[in-house]
Nucleic acid binder design. Structure first.
Lengths: 216, 216
DNA sequence: GTCTATACAGTGATAGAC
DNA sequence: GTCTATCACTGTATAGAC
């Protein structure tokens, strides 16, 4: 507290940089975000950033991997709770997928990854391994359990996965694309889709004859 | 032919620039693509680009709007063919949506739009109006006709739209994100999803009792 | 661990000859 | 309509004081 010039909070200035950087990357893209801009947002000097991160690419990688790695906890809990009724588990899981992919920062990073994937392939690799694969396998376990219990109809796994995750990711992407629209919530009605999508998935998974429970 | 220095093909050098620029933008993003790089790809001088386009942003806008505006022709034809059986029309429509969004350049631009949307909101607006809205309404007409004919069950339109377009857009996005992977076709099995997705949509739209036609 | 100062390559864009 | 030459500026990254 005596030697340094500006020490805002104890310890992890690094975490603060990652947080601010993530916001800026999400808003302006990777190339569209400058270290100067980030420095200003952190109220520090450009050069100081390079004490914490050797390069801009390394900083970006940290935003992807360290920044929000704990996001799958809830999904993991749901996945482990094998006693709950399959439909309720799936309902909870999909609700959580919306939260992860639409509400939180990690899930909104897909367009960013697409932007830098050619220039920094390792980032795409990490994002895939640390986030997407885990998310997928947790979801798949929940469905598999339901099928094993006889509660769900068996559907080709990759296809079902895309029908569950597809609308969610697309909603997230659309909200990034049209972030500046006045009527964003009309164009991309997040809550509406969030509520109705799950019902259609359950209808798909329902065994024949049980599917007439609900009319949209 | 006598006055100019290098006149490759007659007339539309402009179209060539748009074409090359689109490729580079798709590969490296907007900020990640420099005018110098583009000039080299077009085998011309940087300054010459500015004869055709006042700014880089204007060039980008041209890539979005002019470059690939005619892509909805097939979908339009399908949409107009009201005598064909609804299921066949929808099948053809979805197949075309895959072609537009996964195979062609327009559909792969979504992450790009997301990147520049905050900096150049007009581009997002144009893309939305000229492409997405049209695509959506053509699709909706096909479904509405099927419902009117009594062939399809009625499903909440925005939800159904996301369940059709969501997996397609997400497949496209994933292929951009993981473009550098060796096993891209394993990770993002485009053909597989393309074939099976449509069957699930038809099951969703099938009236009760008719849905036992097929097992995935 | 943060600062000031700076290197220097690359950026979008312009001027003016041909 | 394309060229050469050049502009003013911003980009990432580094050196060295404190």
């Amino acid at each position: 507290m005596s030697t340094t010039h500006k020490k805002r909070k104890a310890g992890s200035r690094r975490a603060e940089i990652i947080d601010k950087a993530t916001d800026l990357f999400l808003e302006n893209g990777f190339s569209g975000t400058s270290m100067a801009e980030l420095a200003k947002a952190c109220q520090m000097q450009k050069a100081s950033l390079y004490y914490h991160f050797k390069t801009k690419e390394e900083l970006f990688a940290a935003c992807i991997t360290e920044g929000h790695a704990c996001s799958l906890d809830t999904l993991e809990t749901i996945s482990r709770d094998e006693d709950a009724p399959p439909a309720e588990r799936l309902r909870a899981a999909i609700a959580n997928l919306y939260q992860i992919n639409v509400d939180s920062k990690v899930g909104r990073m897909s367009p960013l990854i697409a932007e830098v994937s050619r220039a920094i392939p390792s980032v795409a690799k990490r994002f895939h391994q640390d986030f997407m694969v885990k998310e997928q396998s947790l979801l798949e376990k929940i469905i598999d359990d339901g099928v094993a219990e006889g509660a769900f109809r068996r559907i080709d796994p990759p296809t079902l996965r895309y029908m569950i995750v597809g609308p969610i990711i697309t909603l997230s992407l659309a909200r990034e694309m049209f972030a500046t629209f006045d009527n964003l919530d009309q164009e991309c009605p997040a809550d509406h889709i969030r509520q109705h999508h799950i019902e259609q998935i359950l209808r798909l998974l329902a065994k024949d004859g049980l599917s007439a429970d609900r009319e949209a």
